[in-house]
């Protein structure tokens, strides 16, 4: 018996439709690709695979951490600030070079805020359901939620800005497109680059390749930036045995803080 052609067409469409409806699953623990500068962390023993090639003891570290107090000036890739916000950056820079932690939110156990938190220096855990994706940062136990169910920020939300802001997203093929609004100005874009309460963040998140997640971030701020700023963060999915983040509980150490 000959199969009707309309039935063949329908059967062919079913797998395509299923594929189109199934977004990738980002769930899992990730670590950022080279979050710190080379040799910045005083690495001792090299990876096991390289041990055979090594001669003598590992080199003595030349740094304890990346230089981030502003004493090297401003990177050409840094966000382009308006004069008012550049003056604010200069003021913070002077304070940091003098050794003050006054403008370091994370040293006060405050959340890193968006978009800085997407650096995920200590690791990230992604929890994904059909209607919501949650991004957790081990550094300062910070959390953000991205709503995928079609809801939009209400005026009440816009009037109540936060560190993480309010994020809504949708899928465009294999890419998650996220808009973040309702961000107050008590956080930094990256490093100690300030921003205004008019800042919004757009992200396009996708797998570059299996296990390699990419977040293309565009920051817009008509008050603080002369033009939108783009950056890309990449994260590698953790391997078995290295896929658990630890509690950060920052205030644990604040009891002795002076």
């Amino acid at each position: 018996m000959r199969t009707p052609s309309y039935l063949v067409s329908m059967l062919c469409l079913i797998p395509a439709a299923l594929y189109a409806q199934a977004p990738p699953d980002f769930s899992g623990v990730y670590y950022p690709i080279n979050p710190f500068g080379a040799n910045a962390l005083g690495r001792g023993a090299p990876p096991a695979a390289a041990k055979g090639k090594q001669q003598g003891p590992p080199p003595r570290p030349t740094q304890s951490a990346p230089l981030a107090d502003g004493s090297q000036g401003r990177s050409p890739d840094a966000p382009s600030l308006t004069p008012q916000y550049m003056a604010k950056w200069e003021m913070i820079r002077k304070s940091r070079i003098a050794g003050s932690s006054d403008y370091d939110n994370t040293a006060k156990c405050l959340p890193p805020g968006m978009p800085a938190m997407m650096s995920m220096a200590y690791g990230m855990e992604v929890m994904q359901t059909k209607d919501k994706i949650t991004f957790f940062s081990e550094l300062n136990d910070a959390l953000r939620r991205v709503y995928l169910d079609g809801r939009k920020p209400t005026q009440k939300i816009l009037d109540d800005p936060t560190y993480a802001g309010y994020s809504t997203g949708h899928w465009e093929g294999d890419t998650l497109v996220v808009d973040t609004v309702a961000l107050h100005e008590n956080s930094f874009i990256e490093g100690f680059t300030p921003h205004s309460d008019a800042m919004t963040v757009k992200e396009r998140i996708r797998f570059q390749s299996p296990g390699l997640l990419e977040d293309r971030i565009t920051v817009t701020d008509p008050k603080a930036l002369t033009k939108p700023w783009d950056t890309v963060k990449t994260y590698r999915k953790a391997t078995s045995g290295n896929d658990e983040l630890r509690e950060f509980a920052c205030p644990e150490g604040l009891a002795d803080a002076k």
Binding site: D69, G99, S101, D104, D256
Partner: peptide
């Protein structure tokens, strides 16, 4: 005291 890296 809890420091930021900028203290060093």
């Amino acid at each position: 005291a809890h420091h930021s890296n900028v203290a060093f």
